[in-house]
Design a binder for these strands. Sequence first.
DNA 1: CCAAAAGTGTTCGAACTACACCCATGT
DNA 2: ACATGGGTGTAGTTCGAACACTTTTGG
Lengths: 230, 230
Amino acid sequence: MPAVFYQEQAKFHVAVDCIILGFNNNELNVLLYKRNFEPLKGEWSLMGGFVRSGEGLDEAATRVLTDCTGINTVFMEQIGAYGEVTRDQGERVISVAYYALVSMNDFSQELWEHYNAKWTKVTETPALIFDHNQMLLDSLSRLKRKAATRPVGFNLLPEKFTLPQLQCLYEAIYQVPLDKRNFRKKLNAMGILEKLDEKDRRNSRRGAFYYMFNKEKYDQLLEQGFYFSL
Amino acid sequence: MPAVFYQEQAKFHVAVDCIILGFNNNELNVLLYKRNFEPLKGEWSLMGGFVRSGEGLDEAATRVLTDCTGINTVFMEQIGAYGEVTRDQGERVISVAYYALVSMNDFSQELWEHYNAKWTKVTETPALIFDHNQMLLDSLSRLKRKAATRPVGFNLLPEKFTLPQLQCLYEAIYQVPLDKRNFRKKLNAMGILEKLDEKDRRNSRRGAFYYMFNKEKYDQLLEQGFYFSL
DNA sequence: CCAAAAGTGTTCGAACTACACCCATGT
DNA sequence: ACATGGGTGTAGTTCGAACACTTTTGG
């Protein structure tokens, strides 16, 4: 086969779509934005953008995330490639989906409005363009699995969080109620949380202690064969 | 933004690579083939091929599998997209990897030779081109997870298999020795295997009973909220 | 003093682990 | 008769599930 072999092959538009997940009011939320070009202008969709020539996929996903939201460093992971021939009504586009976990509190309402975006509870997601609803579902089930075995959930919370908050988060991820005592027992046993002296009094008179995820401790435990599991 | 917007975007070669896994002699094997075009002609690589215009990704993967091996219907699942800018020394190519589970006994030595392919123990995989070694690793860890919660392992065995065989398979997948009695107990409890009257006497005087995976029973149990777990 | 959320231990059963001997049969 | 892999059950332990009351404090 000749060296020009590559040239004979078809080429495709390749896009990345970001499923940006946040947590607020005891619910998982996803950041949607109103599409501002044809086809399907005005419809709701995920954050997305085309991959550029000199750019890797992960790189493109990071860029899209930053450009569309102002967010820099967050947890992000590839979900997979979506390549049905007719998935995009405009033209053939192959899209690689990434999900990102962000702390909603780090960013202001105005910021989102500036970017023409809005947070929606995942349980109340409207119809999205193309296969974006499927991408969201795939992200949520990926998150479910991941959160059970890796401490990624903390990315969805502010740096300082309370145990009731954390439990709500996991209930939202797993879509099942958890037992308060068992949940706390487990976390305590892992020893990867740092208890602060400060309390969050927004939700109760008594107030709930703030905790922080101790990454150093976690990494150290990992070395010793420890496995996160919740 | 104008409707011609799509036209302004970069386009990419998109390939699929198939990690074809089999099981033989108590070891997981992967089907490699000697690359017959530049660059890196003569090096070992995974089965791969470019995606064509009118073709979905899954479709392309199925085609490549069939064209390169003569195999039709097997278990196949996408691993993800690999898009580092410099991953292919020839030109920029984005590749979507799929892993496939096949029963090695279904196909003859001659067939593989005809396709310029060979089976290699995954533990003795040579250096492959590009990021193919990484793809293989990703497939193996995906298989590890998948096999624990879904009855996909059976795809790696002939239709009729013995319990010692099945155990060896899982030991190869998990890379840990399993307890014979506990393993059998678990399988028995699930009730998804059908015991045949026939014995396999190739490995012992006494012979080991053949079993078959009962898919109907499995599907039926699924409806009742049953979860496969091994 | 009352409402509302935070915090705390124990018991029970299920599931997993470890483990050793007899069986069948071709040579 | 013996060597080789196939097949079987039990006891101990660990882990997860269920469960109810006390504490704090702003109003």
